[in-house]
Nucleic acid binder design. Structure first.
Lengths: 144, 144
DNA sequence: CTCAGTTGTAACAGGGAAGGTTGCAACTGG
DNA sequence: CCAGTTGCAACCTTCCCTGTTACAACTGAG
């Protein structure tokens, strides 16, 4: 599977902002987060922009600008993040319509569709069980 | 997510071969399956080649050549197919190593890793619950 | 022995998504 | 007015999937 790292980077950014705020800072910059994630600030801004549209973070411009959490980490789940940054489905159908004159070609898509929907629902439930506060706790618990 | 259709096409091919054999035929050709799936025979041969390596199908060359099932559809699950055609993980880590000098950069990968492993395990369990015989039954049950 | 039909596989092209990079307008507290 | 940052567009590179062509290898039928 050509998996991407969007969910990972988004969770990284949120955990970083959350910890930074716990340390008494008001806002975090994309520059700081990008350094921690070892990537480009624009990549972080793009992802945080999607999280802002989902109501998870807020941004401030001008002097003293940066990003802050819109909600507590405790009330934010990985499902919220996933839905904000991953639009597409986990499994894809045929790129071209199968032969509708063939019994298998005709019935395969509805059959697979309902299986895939069940799996995606399960994944969503798993993601919903993990809050970003859980993630940050695990991050801080990592052996040094 | 840049999802691919490998699992879908592989399941399509297996269901097609299974139905064809139930109708009394010995082997199916990649040409026939490709017509049903509306794709190129080489794409089918590539996927079936991976399924052969996994022990799900067999191939015969020469005159009267083609593909046949190596096991009953009842004993074949979507997990078997998934493992044969999808090597990678569902979610990816950072493409570059995060800043190990940062607390978050250091702890984020083990934290996300264990979450992802749990989710993948759940997905595997779901896939293992569905046999290819189930798939074929659903395919044939589709309204005309 | 030859031939036709099929697999096995390499090679390459095209498309699309993700990630990285640059550049710059817009904003705002000091 | 200025410095620091976001917002965003544009472009490039890389990677993977899919499709396609080409051809050698194989084998039962005749």
């Amino acid at each position: 599977m050509s998996a991407n790292s969007r969910l990972t980077i988004a969770a990284h950014a949120l955990a970083w902002i959350g910890l930074y705020q716990r340390q008494g800072h008001e806002v975090a910059t994309s520059e700081q987060i990008a350094t921690s994630a070892n990537t480009n600030p624009v990549v972080i801004r793009r992802l945080l922009g999607e999280l802002r549209r989902a109501g998870l973070v807020e941004s401030r411009r001008g002097v003293g600008a940066g990003w802050s959490l819109a909600r507590e980490l405790e009330s934010m789940t990985l499902l919220d993040v996933y839905e904000a940054v991953e639009p597409g489905p986990l499994f894809a159908m045929h790129r071209t319509t199968p032969d509708q004159g063939c019994v298998v070609g005709h019935g395969i898509q509805p059959a697979m569709q309902s299986i895939y929907e069940g799996i995606e629902e399960t994944v969503r439930r798993e993601l919903a069980r993990v809050t970003l506060a859980n993630v940050l706790r695990d991050v801080l618990a990592a052996p040094r």
